[in-house]
Structure formats: C-alpha cells, structure tokens
Nucleic acid binder design. Structure first.
Lengths: 174, 174, 174, 174
DNA sequence: GATGAATGAGTTTTCATTCAT
DNA sequence: GATGAATGAAAACTCATTCAT
C-alpha cells in the first residue's frame, strides 16, 4: 500500500479514504481493468468486422492489452485472490462480458454446428481465452526463453488459435 | 517458512538444516518438479508412440501433472521469481528438457516443413506449452467459470492444440 | 531493536519510521555522540585556556564524557563496527575533529619541536586518545578491580598523560 | 558455537562434551589467554632484567601479545561478560597476576616513594595497563586512522608510559 | 480530503543448546 | 568421545491498517 501511495503521490492513509482495504482497492482495479479490456476487445471486434478475421484481431487485442497493461493484467488474472471476501457478483459479470466477446466472434466465424450449442460455445471461448492467457502470462512473467522473439511466439499462438477455431468447427461435422 | 514447517510437522529451524534459504528450498522444489514432469512427459511420449497421437498424450500428461501436483506447478511456473536470480544453469536445463519433449513430438508428428527449421520448431513447442499453461494455471487458480466442466475445457484445449499442430504445419506449405 | 523500542516506550516498528535500519540508527547515534563530545571538549579547552593546563582539562573532559554517557561511548568506540561500512565521510570528519582538539592542546602546550612536525603531532594526539580510551572503556566495562577507587585511577592516568606530554616534547630535543 | 566447531573440525555438539555452555568455554579461553599472557610478560620481565628498562619491555610484550593473539585479547578484555554467572574467583587471580607483573616492574624501576605505598602501586599498575589496553584495543578494532603507522603509535605510547612512570615517581617527591 | 505517527502480527533467518544414537 | 537432527527464543525488518489532528 505504501508503494502504491508513493507512486500516486499520496500518503498511504489517503488510499483508505477511498477504499476499505487493500482487497477492495484491488477489486476496483480488477473492475477497471475488465472495463478497459472490454473496451479494447469491443473496438477490435467492431473495427475488424469488414477487413480481417475478427477472431484474429480479438486475439491480437487481448495480447496487446496484456502486454501494454501488465500491472492491470496481473491484478486481474494472476494475483492470488485472497479468497476471504468473495468478489461481488457484478465483477464476474464484467469478466463474463469479455468472454462473451470471444464467444460472439467464434459463433460468427464458425459453422452453425457450434452456434446452436451455447454450452460448446462457452467452452470454446474459455479455451481460446485460456490459450491467450497462457501466452500473455508467461510473457509478462518473462518465463519465455530469452532467445525467442516474443512476436514470433505471439504470431504462432494467434495462428494456432485461429486455425483451431476453424478446424474445430469443421471437426464437429460428421 | 513457518507454514511449511508446520505442515511437515517440523520447526521452521529444521528446514534450514537442509536448505540454505527459502530461495534454495524453492529452487530444489522447482528442480524436483521439473524432473517429475520430465518423467511424466517422457512416459506419456513413449507409451503412446504406437497407439495414440503422441502430441495428444503429451498434452494430456502435462495437464494431468499440473492438476495432480498443483503446489509443484505453482512453484515451477506461477510464483513470482524473486527466485530466478541465482542457480540458472541447472534449472533452466531441466525446464528446457520438458520443452524439448514437446518439440520432438511436434517434429515427429508434423511435416518436414517445420522439421528442417529448428527455430520454428522451438517457437511452436513454446506456443503449445504456453497454451497448456494457460489452461492449467486458470484451472488451478479456479478462475474458470464454475458452471463449466473442467474436462470439457481440457478436451477442447487438447483438440485445439492437436488440430493447430497439424493445421499449422500444413499452413506453412506453399 | 525491540529492547531499544521498549526502553523508549515505543513499538519496534516506530524506530523504522525514523531510521532506515539499525545501522543507520547507530550511525546517527555515533554522529550525535561525536558532536556532544566535540562540544564538551571544546568547552573544556576554552574554559581552561587561562587557568589550568589545557591538556589536563581536556583529558578530564574526555573521561567525564565517557563516564557520564556510557551508552554513547560504547556505540561510538566499543561496539563492533558491522556499522562502519557505509557513511564514512561525515562520521569520520566528526571523529577527526575531536582528535584535532587534542592535537591543538598538545601543540599549544608543547615545545616547537613537535609543533613543526604535523605527523608527530597526529601520532601523539592519537596516543593520548588511546590512553584515555583505555581508562574509560575499562571503567565502563567494570573491568577495574573493585577495590580500586576509580577516581584514583583517573587522576593517575591524567597525571601520567600530562607528564608524558611534557616529557615527550622534551625528549625529542637533542 | 557452530563457527568455532567448524574451525576446530568438530561438530558443535562436541564442544558441549567439554564445556557446559558458551560462557564456560569463554571462561576457559580467558583463563588460557591469561596464562599465555602471564608467560609472555614473565619472560619479557626476566629477559630484560639486565639489558633494557623492564617496564619498557613489559609494555612491548603486552602490546605484542594483543596484536598477535587478537582473538584471545578480545575474549579476555573486550567481549561483554554476560554477567549472569559470575566468574569463578581463580580467574580473577590469574588476571591479577598479570597486573602484579606490571606492579613489580614499576616498583623495581621506580623510587622508594611509591614502593612503600602498595595502594599507589596498584593504582599505577592499573593505569599502565589501561593505557596499553587503549592502544591495543583500538588497534585490534582498526579504529586508528589508517594514515597512521601503527608502530609509530606503539612507540609513542610506550615512550609515554615509560616517561610517565619515571616522571610520576619523581613528581611524588617533595 | 489528507497526513504523520504509530502499531500488531507477520516475515525470513540465526543461534545456543539438547537429545537419541 | 562424537554426531546429525532438531528446536525455542530471538534477531532485524515489513506490511496493512488505524487514529488523532
């Protein structure tokens, strides 16, 4: 808390005027981060509707967001959630919204087979998210072999995800 | 350290009889975890050579290892590496070995296009690892929507990875 | 640190509000002690210029300071200097100042033989200091035979030092 | 204790076979140190009886002993004596013996004025010891200005002590 | 709205000492 | 005579949090 206070130019005490505890501050940061990510993903989705494969630009937007906002990303997805006080419901809703954006892109880009099964769609959106999360979290934590160009990994991952999204929908055909 | 000590039924001091510091204890855990993972992956690779797609069983083995050894997994891949200052040589070699097992499966299963380019192979092995890591780390951290069956996610992820591995090698052909 | 905290009626944490570490607290105490000693010695020197032998009153002031401020004295001159790694500049200058006061008294009281040789003067000031330090440190540590009156020892030591200062300057004459 | 054990090539436990506690080990070291010092001083006294001023060679022997056995010296005279268990009487007797050697030299070298007053003699022996202790302890602790040659300081101190011993005895004459 | 002073509970690590073998 | 395994008490230091102003 003191480090945060110093960074924002206030005393540590000042934070407690706005947040009950470290945890609630982090909750707020998570919410804010989720909103910012929503914005970034929505923009990517709408921007690409005509030009590029929407899933591809979503993936790129997700990874970019993570790499450009590593602190937010860590708070949102990496830090242990000291489970004492459960997250308020609406935060989950915000997180869900981001997953929905992926789901929508998968549905739009995929074949009707998946589209009709909303459970399969949610699973696949989660899968795509998990894959992207793996890439982002390892890059942020600098756990990737330093001899590797991060961009090569990112491109390979996005290619793989896009390919698997198509492939997958095809593979569900008889 | 005290918590660890209590869990193993010893005093905190006893740990220092065997390890110089918390850091070196964690290094040892990482090494041991890497070795166990190596074993699990190698076994999966050799077991499947005839029957199943080797990459598929590798993926399954990786995820199983993570879910069955969540503490090891966290120490190995999630915990903040205040740790990673000293001791690089050995530990990295062990971690690399696990990546090589994936690379070998990709090379064996893929087309010659990738096989001849060792850099592309390393990138792709890293990509597959990152994807699996995303799935495992989110499952361990219980960040997956509780309405989802973890097994569905796992199957979808493995399918996606296997599909993308084939797809990918094809897509690099002219 | 806890003992210090208890003595001053604060929590151990409170000390860290004012000092970065035990080391820096001790540095501050040393500086403060050196300053107080400077004051005591300067006063003694100026006070005695007319009346008593200045060296004699300096010696007395040094011993008095030590016996009246045994904690300062120990921190300044006895405690193991795990401390003396950083912060040399200022602290040393302050310590040197006290030695200079002795040197000045020796120069003023002595014959021209020593006065012209600044190296010899520094050596002799150091010698006088060392002798006084021996008396003070043994008295503080209560290592003197309890059957002995400390004042007798002190008078004998001061007499000896004053005598040797005269004697010494004479002995350097042809 | 462990460091000591390592240095002597035994386990820490082994020390407790011979000494009840750290304190009693240190007591033994002090006794041994006192004996060795006795030996060194006696030798110096007897050796010099004809040639040099006996007090001068005693002083030199004392300083040499300290500088050549700094660990003994620290245990004997610098380390805090954790007063819990009082020293056994006979240790004091050994320490006293060393003081007596100085007293004898002073008596032999001085005039009858002091010689007849055994209290004054004890005081003066203590004074000489204290002065030597100041020099030795500051040199061992490396608290002397590094620009100074230790030998110059030592010579100056010995000269001063010898001079003061003569001077002193004279000054007590009418 | 903001802060400096303060703290209790916690952290990793050290050390003298004990005990079963 | 000797030791490895073990420990309780203590060390310096950190951190989220509170409270009077």
């Amino acid at each position: 808390m003191r480090k945060i206070a110093k960074r924002i130019g206030y005393s540590a005490t000042a934070i407690y005027l706005h947040f009950d505890s470290k945890e609630s501050l982090f909750h707020a940061l998570i919410e804010q981060g989720m909103d910012r990510m929503s914005l970034a993903l929505s923009e990517a989705a709408s921007r690409s509707r005509a030009s590029e494969n929407p899933l591809r630009s979503l993936c790129r937007a997700y990874i970019d967001f993570g790499l450009e906002n590593p602190e937010y990303y860590e708070v949102m997805f990496v830090l242990k959630p000291v489970l004492r006080h459960r997250y308020p419901a609406d935060k989950y809703r915000r997180a869900r919204r981001n997953l929905d954006i992926f789901a929508e892109a998968l549905r739009a880009g995929g074949d009707p087979a998946i589209g009709s099964d909303s459970a399969a769609l949610r699973i696949d959106a989660t899968r795509v998210w998990a894959m992207l999360h793996g890439v982002v979290s390892l890059l942020i934590a600098k756990r990737i072999d330093s001899g590797l160009d991060p961009n090569d990994l990112i491109e390979a991952a996005i290619d793989g995800i896009v390919a698997s999204a198509v492939q997958q929908s095809e593979s569900t055909l008889p």
